[in-house]
Protein backbone atom coordinates (compact mmCIF):
# COMPACT_ATOMS: atom_id res chain seq x y z
CA UNK A 1 0.00 0.00 0.00
CA UNK A 2 1.16 3.49 -0.86
CA UNK A 3 0.16 6.45 1.24
CA UNK A 4 0.86 10.14 0.66
CA UNK A 5 0.40 12.39 3.69
CA UNK A 6 0.12 16.16 3.35
CA UNK A 7 2.55 16.42 0.45
CA UNK A 8 3.50 20.04 -0.21
CA UNK A 9 6.03 21.19 -2.76
CA UNK A 10 7.26 24.76 -3.14
CA UNK A 11 9.83 25.22 -5.91
CA UNK A 12 12.76 27.57 -5.58
CA UNK A 13 11.34 30.93 -6.53
CA UNK A 14 8.17 30.34 -4.57
CA UNK A 15 5.96 28.48 -7.05
CA UNK A 16 3.50 26.43 -5.02
CA UNK A 17 3.23 23.20 -7.03
CA UNK A 18 1.45 21.00 -4.48
CA UNK A 19 -0.50 21.95 -1.39
CA UNK A 20 -1.30 19.42 1.30
CA UNK A 21 -2.08 16.45 -0.96
CA UNK A 22 -3.02 13.23 0.82
CA UNK A 23 -4.29 9.95 -0.64
CA UNK A 24 -3.78 6.22 -0.38
CA UNK A 25 -3.43 3.61 -3.10
CA UNK A 26 -4.11 -0.04 -2.19
CA UNK A 27 -1.83 -2.65 -3.74
CA UNK A 28 -2.82 -3.66 -7.25
CA UNK A 29 -4.96 -0.61 -8.01
CA UNK A 30 -4.93 1.33 -11.27
CA UNK A 31 -5.10 4.96 -10.13
CA UNK A 32 -5.55 7.77 -12.64
CA UNK A 33 -4.31 11.25 -11.80
CA UNK A 34 -6.07 13.97 -13.78
CA UNK A 35 -5.95 17.73 -13.95
CA UNK A 36 -4.98 20.56 -16.26
CA UNK A 37 -1.45 21.05 -17.46
CA UNK A 38 0.51 22.66 -14.64
CA UNK A 39 -1.85 21.36 -11.95
CA UNK A 40 0.97 19.40 -10.29
CA UNK A 41 0.46 15.87 -11.67
CA UNK A 42 4.08 15.36 -12.72
CA UNK A 43 5.39 16.87 -9.50
CA UNK A 44 3.16 14.57 -7.46
CA UNK A 45 4.36 11.42 -9.26
CA UNK A 46 8.00 12.47 -8.90
CA UNK A 47 7.55 13.18 -5.21
CA UNK A 48 6.65 9.53 -4.71
CA UNK A 49 10.09 8.23 -5.72
CA UNK A 50 11.75 11.49 -4.66
CA UNK A 51 13.04 12.47 -8.07
CA UNK A 52 11.66 15.73 -6.67
CA UNK A 53 12.05 16.25 -2.92
CA UNK A 54 8.74 17.24 -1.33
CA UNK A 55 9.06 20.38 0.80
CA UNK A 56 6.99 18.79 3.54
CA UNK A 57 4.77 15.77 4.05
CA UNK A 58 5.50 12.08 3.97
CA UNK A 59 5.23 9.13 1.63
CA UNK A 60 4.70 5.72 3.21
CA UNK A 61 5.14 2.60 1.21
CA UNK A 62 4.55 -0.81 2.83
CA UNK A 63 5.02 0.88 6.20
CA UNK A 64 8.37 2.46 5.26
CA UNK A 65 8.81 6.22 5.27
CA UNK A 66 10.17 6.95 1.79
CA UNK A 67 10.74 10.62 2.55
CA UNK A 68 13.07 9.74 5.46
CA UNK A 69 15.06 7.06 3.60
CA UNK A 70 18.84 7.38 3.37
CA UNK A 71 20.35 7.57 -0.13
CA UNK A 72 21.16 3.85 -0.03
CA UNK A 73 17.64 2.92 1.15
CA UNK A 74 16.16 5.24 -1.47
CA UNK A 75 18.03 3.34 -4.19
CA UNK A 76 16.52 0.09 -2.95
CA UNK A 77 13.05 1.66 -2.90
CA UNK A 78 13.44 3.19 -6.36
CA UNK A 79 14.43 -0.06 -7.97
CA UNK A 80 10.98 -1.48 -7.12
CA UNK A 81 9.20 1.57 -8.58
CA UNK A 82 9.12 1.60 -12.37
CA UNK A 83 8.60 4.87 -14.17
CA UNK A 84 7.23 5.66 -17.64
CA UNK A 85 7.54 9.15 -19.10
CA UNK A 86 5.61 11.31 -21.55
CA UNK A 87 8.73 11.91 -23.65
CA UNK A 88 9.89 8.28 -23.23
CA UNK A 89 13.30 9.44 -21.90
CA UNK A 90 15.30 6.81 -23.75
CA UNK A 91 18.99 7.30 -24.38
CA UNK A 92 18.77 7.94 -28.12
CA UNK A 93 22.24 6.87 -29.11
CA UNK A 94 22.15 3.59 -27.17
CA UNK A 95 20.74 0.31 -28.38
CA UNK A 96 17.18 -0.61 -27.43
CA UNK A 97 18.52 -3.58 -25.46
CA UNK A 98 20.86 -1.32 -23.46
CA UNK A 99 17.97 1.03 -22.72
CA UNK A 100 15.90 -1.88 -21.43
CA UNK A 101 18.80 -3.28 -19.42
CA UNK A 102 19.19 0.11 -17.74
CA UNK A 103 16.10 -0.87 -15.75
CA UNK A 104 18.26 -3.51 -14.08
CA UNK A 105 20.96 -1.10 -12.88
CA UNK A 106 19.59 -0.91 -9.33
CA UNK A 107 20.27 -4.63 -8.97
CA UNK A 108 23.66 -4.62 -10.71
CA UNK A 109 27.02 -4.33 -8.98
CA UNK A 110 28.40 -0.91 -10.00
CA UNK A 111 31.79 -2.50 -10.71
CA UNK A 112 30.20 -4.50 -13.54
CA UNK A 113 28.51 -1.34 -14.84
CA UNK A 114 31.93 0.26 -15.11
CA UNK A 115 32.76 -2.15 -17.93
CA UNK A 116 29.21 -2.18 -19.30
CA UNK A 117 28.38 -5.76 -18.32
CA UNK A 118 25.05 -7.33 -17.42
CA UNK A 119 24.48 -10.91 -16.31
CA UNK A 120 23.18 -13.48 -18.80
CA UNK A 121 19.90 -13.77 -16.88
CA UNK A 122 19.40 -10.00 -17.13
CA UNK A 123 19.97 -10.04 -20.89
CA UNK A 124 17.56 -12.97 -21.22
CA UNK A 125 15.04 -11.06 -19.11
CA UNK A 126 15.43 -7.98 -21.31
CA UNK A 127 14.61 -9.97 -24.44
CA UNK A 128 11.55 -11.38 -22.69
CA UNK A 129 10.44 -7.89 -21.65
CA UNK A 130 10.77 -6.69 -25.25
CA UNK A 131 8.79 -9.70 -26.44
CA UNK A 132 6.13 -8.96 -23.87
CA UNK A 133 5.60 -5.41 -25.20
CA UNK A 134 5.50 -6.77 -28.75
CA UNK A 135 8.86 -5.64 -30.21
CA UNK A 136 11.16 -8.66 -29.78
CA UNK A 137 12.92 -7.93 -33.09
CA UNK A 138 14.01 -4.37 -32.23
CA UNK A 139 16.62 -5.22 -29.59
CA UNK A 140 19.64 -4.25 -31.69
CA UNK A 141 18.19 -1.03 -33.17
CA UNK A 142 19.31 2.33 -31.96
CA UNK A 143 16.59 3.82 -29.75
CA UNK A 144 16.07 6.86 -31.97
CA UNK A 145 15.38 4.65 -34.99
CA UNK A 146 12.08 3.57 -33.42
CA UNK A 147 8.72 5.29 -33.82
CA UNK A 148 7.08 7.05 -30.89
CA UNK A 149 4.83 4.16 -29.95
CA UNK A 150 7.71 1.70 -30.11
CA UNK A 151 9.87 3.97 -27.98
CA UNK A 152 7.20 4.07 -25.29
CA UNK A 153 7.06 0.28 -25.34
CA UNK A 154 10.80 0.25 -24.72
CA UNK A 155 10.11 2.58 -21.82
CA UNK A 156 7.58 0.10 -20.42
CA UNK A 157 10.01 -2.79 -20.95
CA UNK A 158 12.63 -0.82 -19.01
CA UNK A 159 10.16 -0.41 -16.13
CA UNK A 160 9.32 -4.14 -16.29
CA UNK A 161 13.02 -5.01 -15.83
CA UNK A 162 12.84 -3.53 -12.34
CA UNK A 163 10.37 -6.24 -11.16
CA UNK A 164 8.30 -3.27 -10.02
CA UNK A 165 5.63 -3.25 -7.36
CA UNK A 166 4.51 0.18 -8.54
CA UNK A 167 4.64 1.83 -11.94
CA UNK A 168 4.46 5.62 -12.07
CA UNK A 169 3.31 6.64 -15.53
CA UNK A 170 3.63 10.36 -16.23
CA UNK A 171 1.23 11.09 -19.11
CA UNK A 172 2.51 8.02 -20.96
CA UNK A 173 0.30 8.57 -24.01
CA UNK A 174 0.23 12.36 -24.33
CA UNK A 175 2.73 12.30 -27.21
CA UNK A 176 0.96 9.53 -29.13
CA UNK A 177 -2.02 9.28 -31.48
CA UNK A 178 -5.28 7.77 -30.12
CA UNK A 179 -4.72 4.30 -31.59
CA UNK A 180 -1.23 4.01 -30.16
CA UNK A 181 -2.50 5.52 -26.91
CA UNK A 182 -4.90 2.64 -26.45
CA UNK A 183 -2.25 0.07 -27.26
CA UNK A 184 0.15 1.54 -24.69
CA UNK A 185 -2.62 1.77 -22.10
CA UNK A 186 -3.49 -1.88 -22.74
CA UNK A 187 0.10 -2.87 -21.97
CA UNK A 188 -0.08 -0.98 -18.69
CA UNK A 189 -3.46 -2.56 -17.94
CA UNK A 190 -2.08 -6.04 -18.55
CA UNK A 191 0.86 -5.43 -16.25
CA UNK A 192 -1.59 -4.16 -13.67
CA UNK A 193 -3.99 -7.09 -13.96
CA UNK A 194 -1.59 -9.98 -14.64
CA UNK A 195 1.31 -9.06 -12.38
CA UNK A 196 -0.68 -7.20 -9.74
CA UNK A 197 1.50 -4.11 -10.16
CA UNK A 198 0.05 -0.93 -8.70
CA UNK A 199 -0.16 1.73 -11.44
CA UNK A 200 -0.33 5.48 -10.88
CA UNK A 201 -0.99 7.07 -14.24
CA UNK A 202 -1.57 10.72 -15.03
CA UNK A 203 -3.87 11.18 -18.02
CA UNK A 204 -5.41 13.94 -20.11
CA UNK A 205 -8.37 12.19 -21.74
CA UNK A 206 -11.38 11.20 -19.69
CA UNK A 207 -12.32 8.35 -22.02
CA UNK A 208 -8.97 6.69 -21.21
CA UNK A 209 -9.69 7.26 -17.51
CA UNK A 210 -13.10 5.63 -17.82
CA UNK A 211 -11.73 2.70 -19.74
CA UNK A 212 -8.64 1.82 -17.70
CA UNK A 213 -8.71 3.36 -14.23
CA UNK A 214 -10.04 1.73 -11.05
CA UNK A 215 -10.05 5.02 -9.21
CA UNK A 216 -9.31 8.69 -9.92
CA UNK A 217 -7.74 11.57 -8.07
CA UNK A 218 -7.87 15.05 -9.54
CA UNK A 219 -5.60 18.03 -8.95
CA UNK A 220 -6.34 21.67 -9.53
CA UNK A 221 -3.58 24.20 -8.91
CA UNK A 222 -1.77 21.75 -6.67
CA UNK A 223 -4.76 20.85 -4.51
CA UNK A 224 -6.61 17.55 -4.40
CA UNK A 225 -10.11 18.43 -5.62
CA UNK A 226 -11.59 15.00 -6.30
CA UNK A 227 -11.08 11.42 -5.21
CA UNK A 228 -13.40 8.64 -6.31
CA UNK A 229 -14.52 6.27 -9.07
CA UNK A 230 -14.25 7.29 -12.72
CA UNK A 231 -18.02 7.05 -13.07
CA UNK A 232 -18.54 9.70 -10.41
CA UNK A 233 -17.14 12.48 -12.57
CA UNK A 234 -20.31 14.25 -13.73
CA UNK A 235 -20.56 17.66 -15.38
CA UNK A 236 -20.41 19.48 -12.07
CA UNK A 237 -17.33 17.62 -10.90
CA UNK A 238 -15.78 18.10 -14.34
CA UNK A 239 -16.10 21.87 -14.06
CA UNK A 240 -14.63 21.76 -10.58
CA UNK A 241 -11.61 19.90 -11.83
CA UNK A 242 -10.98 21.67 -15.11
CA UNK A 243 -12.48 25.12 -14.39
CA UNK A 244 -15.88 26.47 -15.28
CA UNK A 245 -15.04 27.38 -18.89
CA UNK A 246 -14.05 23.83 -19.80
CA UNK A 247 -16.05 21.73 -22.26
CA UNK A 248 -16.10 17.96 -22.30
CA UNK A 249 -14.62 16.55 -25.46
CA UNK A 250 -13.75 12.94 -24.63
Amino acid sequence: MLEARNITKVYEGGVQALTDVSFTVPKGQFLAVIGLSGSGKSTLLRCINRLIEPTSGQIFWNGQDVTAASPEELRRIRRRIGMVFQSFNLVHRSKVLTNVLAGRLGYTNPAWSLINRFSKTDIEKAHQALARVGIPDKADYRADELSGGQQQRVGIARALMQDPEIILADEPVASLDPVLAHSIMKHLERINKEDGVTVLCSLHFLDLVHKYADRVIALNQGRLVFEGLPGEIDDKKFKEIYGRDAERVG
Binding site: R76, R78, R79, N89, A102, S113
Partner: peptide, 24 residues
Protein backbone atom coordinates in the same frame (compact mmCIF):
# COMPACT_ATOMS: atom_id res chain seq x y z
CA UNK B 1 15.08 13.04 -19.52
CA UNK B 2 17.28 9.95 -19.77
CA UNK B 3 19.17 11.09 -16.68
CA UNK B 4 15.92 11.22 -14.74
CA UNK B 5 14.81 7.87 -16.12
CA UNK B 6 18.01 6.04 -15.23
CA UNK B 7 18.09 7.63 -11.80
CA UNK B 8 14.53 6.44 -11.23
CA UNK B 9 15.57 2.81 -11.76
CA UNK B 10 17.69 2.96 -8.59
CA UNK B 11 21.00 3.36 -10.39
CA UNK B 12 23.73 5.01 -8.36
CA UNK B 13 25.55 8.13 -9.50
CA UNK B 14 28.32 6.30 -11.33
CA UNK B 15 25.85 4.09 -13.20
CA UNK B 16 23.75 7.11 -14.12
CA UNK B 17 26.79 8.77 -15.66
CA UNK B 18 27.81 5.65 -17.56
CA UNK B 19 24.37 4.83 -18.96
CA UNK B 20 22.65 8.22 -19.31
CA UNK B 21 25.39 10.84 -19.67
CA UNK B 22 28.26 9.25 -21.59
CA UNK B 23 26.22 7.98 -24.58
CA UNK B 24 24.91 11.52 -25.05
Amino acid sequence: GPLEAVEATGANRLQTIIYAVIPQ
